[in-house]
């Protein structure tokens, strides 16, 4: 199982991105996971919570978008494979070695909460005209 080490990489990248943007509270990380990435979704979800502990991502949710295998069929163009055991076009049975999607293992977005100033009302703005008067 290498999902824990994948989860650590994921947390590192997300934390660095959050830090760069000055984000202090990440609520969710969105990940694209291809059917042929070699990574097991449930194991990754499990590893994520462990890897997130003690980081800016602790308590955040990992939202996984599963990407099916899309191949380029020489006859039919882009088609989705119903499973990853057979690289043949589901319509015409042509061999389809050329893969367009399905190996993804990439972070697509971070969800975060904007810091709430804590309910303190901002001082009213004084208009320039008022100052003159």
């Amino acid at each position: 199982m290498h999902e824990l080490s994948i989860a650590h990489n994921l947390i590192q990248i997300a934390s660095a991105a959050a830090h760069e943007e000055g984000i202090s509270r990440v609520t969710a990380v969105h990940l694209k996971l291809g059917a042929l990435s070699g990574v097991v979704k449930d194991a990754l979800l499990f590893g994520y919570d462990i890897a997130a502990e003690g980081t800016v991502l602790e308590g955040s949710k990992l939202v996984i978008e599963e990407i099916p295998v899309i191949v380029n069929c020489p006859n039919c163009g882009q088609v989705e494979l119903p499973n990853i055991q057979r690289f043949r076009c589901p319509n015409c049975d042509a061999i389809t070695p050329e893969m367009i999607h399905g190996k993804e293992l990439e972070i697509s977005a971070l969800e975060y909460e904007e810091d709430d100033p804590g309910g303190v009302e901002s001082p009213p703005l004084i208009k320039a005209e008022e100052v003159k008067e």
Partner: peptide, 9 residues
């Protein structure tokens, strides 16, 4: 808020 990033793990 949503921050879009695109980076391979």
């Amino acid at each position: 808020q949503l921050l879009k990033i695109q980076q391979g793990v």
